Amino acid sequence: MIKVNDMRFHLSFNVTEDGIKLRDFLGAQQISKRTLTAVKYNGGTLLVNGIERDVRHILNSSDRIDVYFPPEETSDGLEAEEGDLALVFEDDFLLILDKPAHQSTMPSFNHRSRTIANFVARKFISEKIPSTVHIVTRLDHNTSGLVCIAKNRHIHHLLGNQVSNGTFKRGYAAIVEGHFFPDYIMINEAIGRKDGSIIERIVRSDGQKACTEVHVTDRFVINRQKLTKIELKLHTGRTHQIRVHMKWTGHPIHGDDLYGGSQSLISRQALHCESLQFKHPITNKSLTFTAPLPLDMKRILSHNQ
């Protein structure tokens, strides 16, 4: 029996053909076997026309299916903390936030608290959203810009599929050292961990495939220092991918001291996720979100006026 105030994440579907098993129908809706197992054993419910059924039930056209997903518990070690979130978009399924530089997306050994995930966990608790925090796209501690967060593991699964198949588009802006040529390049260089380091990555033949698209938008000089503003598109999502690829070209990101960038004009890598484009996981509507450059990067560009 479903309670009137049931707060569990819930999706409804209408059946349009006869004779298909409930399990197969839900699979066609991209509900994974793992999720169905969790629904069965961890507090979820499957209803067909308001009656609880198992996954072997045979459906008829015009049937209505309601899937109540099991409530999720906050991940161990993720402390819920009050903090400001720069909200760009929110609905029942996902969040888009504009992360400032000098804030981590998730807790780590060096940054255990005051992360985006800590703040979102508190938001979910205060709004009685029965979910843990599902980061779809994350940014390095000192990279600013757009972050996508799912409100349920199934939504995370659907968005993760888009990331994997390349239909989830991420656009970045950066300021790099030197005058970068040519105006356009596609970098296809595998990336792996640098020997002896748990943090730094390098281009190496035995690494993971990595592809970054680079467009030059401006070349300029400040205090005799040559700089280039570029826009980038990620076609894969390796750790430090843009930073590593730009170092490999001989044009590290300005401010990125880990990968050889000078900090004469900025105290962190001048890298910003300025756009996200993807299909809404439920409505299939095309979504585009943008975030303006932060002040520290604008200040550098203003010297070029």
Rank of each mutant, 00 (worst) to 15 (best):
I2P: 06
K3E: 11
K3R: 04
V4W: 10
N5R: 11
L11N: 15
S12P: 14
V15A: 03
V15W: 02
T16Q: 14
G19L: 03
F25Y: 14
L26T: 11
G27L: 14
Q29W: 03
Q30S: 11
Q30N: 07
T35G: 13
L36E: 08
L36M: 10
T37H: 10
V39I: 15
Y41R: 12
G43D: 01
L46I: 01
L47N: 08
V48E: 01
G50S: 02
G50M: 09
E52D: 03
R53Y: 00
D54T: 10
D54Y: 07
V55M: 15
V55G: 05
H57A: 06
I58F: 07
D63P: 05
R64S: 15
R64G: 13
Y68S: 04
F69T: 01
P71I: 09
P71T: 12
D76H: 07
E79Y: 05
E82S: 08
E82Y: 07
L85D: 03
L85T: 04
A86R: 09
E90V: 02
D92G: 11
D92E: 09
F93Y: 11
F93V: 13
L97Q: 05
D98F: 08
A101W: 06
A101R: 11
A101N: 05
H102N: 13
M106N: 06
P107N: 00
H111K: 05
R114T: 04
T115F: 12
I116M: 02
F119L: 08
F124S: 00
F124V: 00
I125P: 00
S126F: 12
S126A: 14
E127A: 06
E127M: 10
E127C: 10
E127T: 07
S131P: 15
S131G: 05
G145I: 14
C148Y: 02
A150Q: 03
N152L: 04
H154Y: 02
H156R: 12
L158D: 14
G160L: 01
N161S: 09
S164Q: 09
S164H: 10
N165Y: 05
K169R: 15
D183P: 08
I185K: 13
M186N: 13
M186W: 13
A190W: 14
I191A: 00
I191Q: 03
G196C: 06
G196K: 03
I199F: 03
R201L: 05
R201M: 14
I202V: 15
V203Y: 10
V203M: 09
R204Q: 02
Q208L: 07
K209M: 10
C211H: 15
V214F: 06
H215T: 15
V216N: 14
R219Q: 06
R224C: 15
K229M: 11
K233H: 15
H235S: 07
G237F: 00
T239H: 02
Q241S: 02
Q241H: 00
V244E: 04
H245P: 12
G250Y: 13
P252E: 05
I253N: 01
G255L: 04
D257H: 04
L258P: 07
Y259D: 02
G260S: 04
G260L: 08
S262Q: 03
S267A: 04
Q269V: 02
Q269N: 11
C273N: 07
S275D: 01
F278G: 03
P281L: 11
K285F: 09
F289Y: 01
L293P: 02
K298W: 03
R299K: 11
I300C: 05
L301N: 01
